[in-house]
Structures are given as structure tokens and as C-alpha cells.
Amino acid sequence: MAARIDEFLIDVRPQREWGWLVISYLFLGGAGAGLFLVSLYLEHLWAGVLGLLVLLVGTVLLLLDLGRPERFWRAFFRPQTSWISRGCFFITLLFVLGVIELALQWPGLELPAWLSEGTTLRTSLRVAGGGAAVLVMIYTGFVLAPSPAIPFWNSAFFPIIFFAYSLLAGIDILILTSPMLPGPSLDLMLLERNQNYLVILCLLLVLSHVSVMSSSAVAARESIRLLTRGRWASLFLGGVIGAGLIVPLLLALPVVWEAQVQTVFALTFILALLRLFGDYLFRFLVMRVGLYDPLL
């Protein structure tokens, strides 16, 4: 196990510790929580079930990334300072409140009057479930943002970017799985229209972050160079910005304004796939261009 030669050089260093398992968790955890949040709004039982399943897969991947997965329960011990610890509580809270919410929505279930639809308790449970979903969507941004070590991550934009991207991905998973989901049919047109607002929001946030970072610390400027002119430029400009945001926005124009229902069905699937691809790629690149400042 030889050390790499660049470990002995005074230079900008890339982070190598968090790889595809963490990237996949960032994507699936956010998307699952986003989908659950949307399911509450749409009151769609099976969308909620799917959201929790996606979150579960992401959480398993995160556990597999630990050096000692069997000690995962110890991560609940430092919520006073650690965002990872807080995230464990948020994920647990979402699973608990999510399962309760879905159980209460289960068809044919006889509920006591104090738990029926419209009661204060029921509404409170739903609001708390939605709150837990929002926390799961944004806390990963707070894991990255407070770190002074990697200037590209040290930004208040990340919690908001991850929220927007998580909601976008959650709705895209819903669009892709809508033909197979039991329950009431979904208004794809409405979902697609909302996606365009989210795409514009993501675009503005990502470009703002790039703009702020391009005049920040040495390592952040190098991260931006890698994204815009260096090794990852084609994936960032072509994949995240182009295929993931701008192309779906342009292709969606006829869907939104002309309302040709026949074209909606096929096109929305393609748009959803493109946006999901862009979302995963964005999280991949955030990890790949995480660079430490040089020590001298």
C-alpha cells in the first residue's frame, strides 16, 4: 500500500474520502425525501411509499460507506455539534413519521375519530413529516457548508441547492414511475410545469455559486477552473447545465405553453431522465472538485 507521490507535495489537494457511495446517498436520500414531501402535498399513498423506499436504499449505501457500519448507532451521540449526527436524527424522524403517515392513509383502515382526516393531530403529524423531509433534503448541505477545509463547499448556497435539486429529483422519480404506481392518476402536466420553475431555480443557484466561488480562495478558484475549463468542464457544462437544466427547460416549452397532451406523455419521461442525470452528475462533481487549500 504505497502512498501517492502527490501526498508529499505542497499543493491544492483533492478530497478522496467520500466517493460514489456518499454521492449516491446524497442523490437518493435527497430524492427520496423530496418525493415523500410531494406525496404529502398530493396525498398520494404510493408515492410516499416509493419516497421512503428510495431513502432507505440511499441510507443503506451510506451505511456501507462507513468503515465500521455496525457502529452506526454511535452517530446519534453528538447532535450538539455534528451535522452528520443531526442528520441521523432527521432520517430516523422521517422514517418514523413517514411510516405513521402512510399507515394512516392505508386503504380500508378504520381510524378513531381523533385520528381521522382534518383533525389537529393528523394535520400536525403530516406537517411534522413534511418538516422532517425538508430537513433530510437540506442537512447534507450543512454537512458540507460549515467546513473551512474545502472552500468550494464552504458556501451557504449548498443547503438551498440541495433542497431545490432534491425536490426536482423527487418529482422526476414520480413522473417516471407514474404509469406503474397504484392509486389516483397524476396530473403530469401540472408536475412538469412546476419542474420548470425548479429547473430555473437550480440554474440560478448553481450559477450564483459558481460566480461567488470564482473570486474566492485559491482552492475554490481551482474547483471552478476544473468545472468550467478543466477536466470536468464537459460534464459540468454539457451534463449538469446543458443536459440537466437548459435542454429540459427548452424542450418543456411546448409542454407548458401549447399543452399538446399527446406529446406530454413521452416527452415528460425524457425530460425527467435528463434532469435526474443532471442531478446525479451535479452531486458527483461537487464531490470531485472538493479541493483543500494549499498549506503554503
Binding site: R13, Q15, E17, W18, D65, L66, G67, R68, R71, F72, R74, A75, S82, I84, V143, S147, P148, A149, I150, G290, Y292, D293, L295
Partner: peptide, 16 residues
């Protein structure tokens, strides 16, 4: 005995 191997400390420390 307490370390999980999550490596968040490695990500947070600027000194490597």
C-alpha cells in the same frame, strides 16, 4: 473504539 470510519473529520480538517 468509538470511531465509525465516516471520515467527516478528514473532510473538515484543512491540514490533511
Amino acid at each position: 473504539d468509538l470511531c465509525l470510519g465516516c471520515r467527516s473529520c478528514m473532510e473538515a480538517c484543512p491540514y490533511g
